[in-house]
Amino acid sequence: MTYFKLPAGVRDILPEESARLDRIEDTLRKKFDKEGFCSVRTAGLEYYDTFTCIQSPVPQANMFKMTDKDGNLIVLRPDMTLSCARIAATKLREERARLCYFSNIYNFAAGGNSDREVAQAGVEIFGEEGAWSDAQTVAFAAECLRAVGLKNFIVDIGHVGFYKGLLEDSGLSAEAAEEIRGYINAKDVVNTEIALRRYGAGEKAQAAILALPSLFGGAEVLERARTLTENPAALAALDHLQQVYEHLCRAGAEKHVSFDLGTVKSLSYYSGMVFTGLAEGVGAPVLSGGRYDGLCAQFGRALSAVGFAIGLVRVLRAQMNGEEKN
């Protein structure tokens, strides 16, 4: 009977759970609708090159690959933001667009705490920029999580520009920077320190990079970070987050917000503010997003952009955790 089983990392969703996921989707669809998002359904199969010819390629090992009739490599779509950016840059005429989607993405390499087929609901905003737009996006992300019934959650905000700024001052090679990035992302101070010494980073930059793993918490983190560096790019990133925070406070949306300047993801297309939604009882983020201003230009038309995606199955898990507690 082996042929009636499923491959590793995917699963069937049966009526009871499926109905609950439908309700989550309905709630989000109404939310997206109200904010003027238009839904798109991007192609499930795409060319391999679309995801590898850009500056922040999707790692080869993460994609399900097949060969097309003409010998070209095609993949199951690995990421919705990239597909939406491609559409906005190549198929839409307007200077502004608000797209949303309910789609699955596929990750060949996934395992452990993540699935190989991931159902996502997401929004992508094109042609809006600045701290006000970023704050609105974060506030909307929090609102979506509240709407689907999560109570104990936070939206954790970082900025890729801060780490990049510190790196500029450190004189580290790209290879050394990538190794150290891994340690910082794991908040591993021991190895960060050993590597910084081995690669001989400047003293002031060393102290600043070494502080990164502890730069998380409330808005006071931004003040603490300011004392660590004089790099203009790093300081601009802090100014930007400060503005975002002030906008959030004015909108009364600061309650669910925290900061972490030590979240430095690998080779991502994000260019500015990044954020993740964290819910108690679910060991991995339920939401993730950020600003990616340089990406559309690589598909042929420069457009500023920001967006986020919600992992629907993780939201369901968070809901069920909440119910168990009550």
């Binding site: 925290s258 964290l278 108690e280 679910v282 060991g283």
Partner: peptide, 10 residues
């Protein structure tokens, strides 16, 4: 520490 717990149970 779990990456989510560190923030939600800080």
């Amino acid at each position: 520490a779990n990456k989510v717990s560190l923030k939600t149970k800080a």
